[in-house]
């Protein structure tokens, strides 16, 4: 693996004493795509939130391109080049699609570059037809793409996608997989995903979270065969109402 773009050491978040993420040592190589899987409540979103400054870690460090960025503010981490599509869509509902993308692009690019980037993203995400529509009026799948588009418009070095296909139709999911496949040529990515078909479409390497810890890290084929992983998922189903 090349020099890590992202590394966490002993990263921990406790809510009222209960650990949601518990001493995670994680490395992501430059240009690598990793899928993060694990049952609900495993701590995946919390892990992302600490990397993007939405939550301050209880303990541990976050290194981005070798520099300690632990606990830095959200906009600073964004400026370093970390972009996130959050699990709960986070959008500018009152703005139209084009302006949303433009705001994202314009933050770090000149006016004409920003326009070019926005046009490219509108085409890539199939949002041309709704460019003038208010984001709040769009269907769920399109909203997911607007958020993805905004994150891309910034051209981040590291892209975190938290369940990007949630609520998408199978067709939309396929197109998202294709989009991610194209994107990975340009940047490092971590994708949280439940759909194993989807994971198989986009990734080779998978990290499995369980109860705030890394259960295993391996190629997708190996993970799917692993007895512990199966038990974790099945167990999660049994425990759902506990």
């Amino acid at each position: 693996m090349s020099a890590p773009i992202l590394e966490t050491r002993g990263l921990t978040k406790r809510f009222g004493g209960v650990p949601a993420v518990d001493g995670v040592d994680f490395k992501l190589g430059e240009g690598e795509l990793r899928c993060l899987i694990g049952p609900n409540g495993a701590g995946k979103s919390t892990f992302f939130k600490m990397i993007t400054g939405q939550l301050a870690p209880t303990a541990g460090t976050v290194l981005f391109r070798g520099a300690d960025v632990t606990g830095e503010e959200r906009h600073r981490l964004a400026r370093h080049g970390i972009g996130i599509k959050t699990q709960v869509p986070s959008l500018f509902d009152g703005l139209d699609v084009r302006e949303s993308l433009h705001l994202a692009a314009r933050r770090f690019h000149g006016a004409s570059d920003a326009r070019r980037i926005v046009d490219a993203i509108l085409a890539e995400t199939h949002l041309d037809a709704v460019a003038g529509r208010k984001v709040g009026e769009l269907a769920h799948g399109q909203r997911q793409w607007v958020e993805l588009g905004m994150v891309l418009a910034r051209e981040p070095l590291l892209l975190l996608l938290d369940e990007p296909t949630a609520g998408m139709t199978p067709d939309e999911t396929r197109r998202t997989a294709a989009l991610i496949a194209r994107l990975r040529q340009r940047r490092a990515m971590i994708v949280v995903e439940h759909d194993m078909h989807f994971v198989r479409m986009i990734a080779e390497a998978v990290t499995v979270f369980h109860q705030g810890r890394i259960l295993m890290e391996a190629p997708i084929g190996e993970v799917l065969r692993d007895a512990r992983v199966r038990e974790v998922y099945l167990g999660a189903h049994k425990d759902r109402h506990a």
């Binding site: 964004a78 996130i84 986070s90 994150v151």
Partner: peptide
């Protein structure tokens, strides 16, 4: 419109 999103965009 959305302070969190604006900050996550830098």
């Amino acid at each position: 419109e959305n302070e969190l999103r604006a900050e996550l965009l830098g």
